[in-house]
Amino acid sequence: MNPPAQTPFRRAVKRFRRNRLGMLALVSVGGLFVIAAVFAILSSADIPFPSNPNATNLERKLLPPNPINWLGTDNLGRDLFSRMLHGSYISLTVGFVAVTVSLCIGIVIGAVSGYFGRWVDNILMRVVDAVMCFPTFFLILTAVALLGPSMFNIIIVIGLVSWTGTARLVRAEFLTLRETEYVRAAKTLGQSTPKIIFRHILPNAFAPIFVTAVLGIPAAILTEAGLSFLGFGVQPPQATWGNIIADGKTYLLDAWWLIVFPGLAIFLSALSFYLAGDALRQAVETRTERK
């Protein structure tokens, strides 16, 4: 008997590498990470590089892009380029942590629902149905506004509202996986239920969960931007891409750079995550092999 030539993981990596668009998106996501990490450190250490993002200079307000302020200045003369760089980690943090929160809830509810089935499944899935009826963005807006807009609250609320898709997916995986022989073997050996759920079944459902997680990040980033735009995002003076646009909309017809550049940053980072996530989905998907 020969060992399998390729592990599923190696095959997925190989497939992913062949996807040029996916690799490009991955590189861009990686670049975004580096920028965000570097400037998160710089702003916590108050190092003004390329310049202080919160330093006002009314003599230089609303300047279009120029050699000193590469992307122009806002109505208080703050440098747009530095503000965008120092705001980059907010989007990424919100995206990542919110998705982690929603994954935790979704995995537990989906796993319990799919593993136990019957009335547990019935009740939990009706709750999922009920949550799915709500217009997500409006529900998030209401909760964030009433709790008070802060980064922590935004992350928690986005996570609390957006777990339903993950729960359904995990449930579907568990419904098929719980009938497999190795699960029956684990049961026969007298393993505890939590151990069967998290040690034996969950790792086998890893690939689709990982894909939804990656695709959830841009959605959370866009939601944060939308909240910022309505004035319920991360609060000033902390710059975020969303609240730069929100502040800039007053000068819409005089200062296009205040709208265009931060919006472009949101768009490109969300697009990179979506494309990377889609490439990942294609790489781990086994169904297309049948063709």
Partner: peptide
């Protein structure tokens, strides 16, 4: 299609208004 998904709606709305 992913581009359409990744666009912040309010941003395009403002670009269009401009």
């Amino acid at each position: 299609a992913f581009g359409f998904l990744a666009i912040p709606e309010f941003w395009v709305a403002y670009l269009l208004i401009i």
